[in-house]
Simulated scan of single mutants.
Amino acid sequence: MRRFLFTYTLAVLPWLACAAPAKADTAGFSSHVQPLSSGEDVYRHVCQSCHMPDARGAMGAGAQFPALAGNPKLQSGAYPVYVILNGFGGMPWFAGVLDDTQIANVVNYVRTHFGNHYTDAVTPADVAAQHPAVIPQEE
């Protein structure tokens, strides 16, 4: 029996090595990731995992994620732009991850939803003006 298995294995190995892998059917899939263009899209895919779907924040496991719902700090559009670009506390920065339009859109979304009624819109130009300064390195 051992001899049979050994012979069978030797006979099958070359065939397995030459067999082409099966191709997956990808007809229904796009090769591009859909951009997050609306503020709601950005919030749902980037922000809500920490700030929660209702924007009421969360606390636990040694971390605190502040509520954005009814948050008076959002009165100035410059504040959330700064926090998104530079990070704050445990929040990472998103400069270079989200573009200026995405940041403006999510700030405007948060400032006009979840019990917030701040209607003075932030523009991509407002976001661009707050980008961290790049310090040139000496050569």
Rank of each mutant, 00 (worst) to 15 (best):
L85Y: 03
R111A: 05
S37N: 15
P53W: 00
N105F: 02
A17L: 14
V81L: 07
T101N: 13
A27Q: 09
D25C: 01
G28P: 00
V83N: 08
P92E: 04
L68G: 06
G90S: 14
P72G: 03
F88N: 13
R44K: 14
T26Q: 10
H32G: 03
A27T: 15
H32K: 13
Q48E: 15
T101P: 02
T101S: 15
P14I: 08
F29L: 13
N108E: 04
N105V: 00
V83M: 08
A104M: 10
L16K: 02
A67D: 07
N108Y: 05
A22C: 04
G90Y: 09
A58G: 13
W15D: 01
H51D: 07
L74K: 01
P72Y: 09
L74F: 03
V97N: 11
G39Q: 06
S38E: 09
V106S: 01
A27R: 13
W15T: 11
L74M: 05
V106A: 05
A95T: 10
S38L: 09
A78W: 04
V110A: 05
P80S: 02
G60W: 02
Q48F: 04
A63P: 00
F65P: 01
V110K: 00
C18A: 15
A67E: 09
V110I: 15
N86H: 15
C18T: 13
A22K: 09
N105T: 01
G57A: 07
M91A: 13
K23Y: 05
S76D: 15
R56C: 05
G62D: 02
F114D: 02
A104E: 07
D99M: 10
G89Q: 04
D54H: 06
P72M: 06
S49D: 11
V46F: 03
A67Q: 09
A104D: 09
S76E: 15
K23D: 11
W15K: 03
F65S: 08
M59C: 06
M52E: 14
P66D: 11
F88M: 12
F29N: 08
H113T: 06
P66I: 11
V97Q: 14
G39T: 04
Y109Q: 02
K23W: 11
Q75L: 13
P72F: 07
G57I: 08
V97K: 13
Q75R: 14
V83G: 00
D99I: 08
C47G: 02
V106E: 04
N108W: 05
Y79A: 11
A61Y: 14
G62T: 00
F65L: 10
G62Y: 07
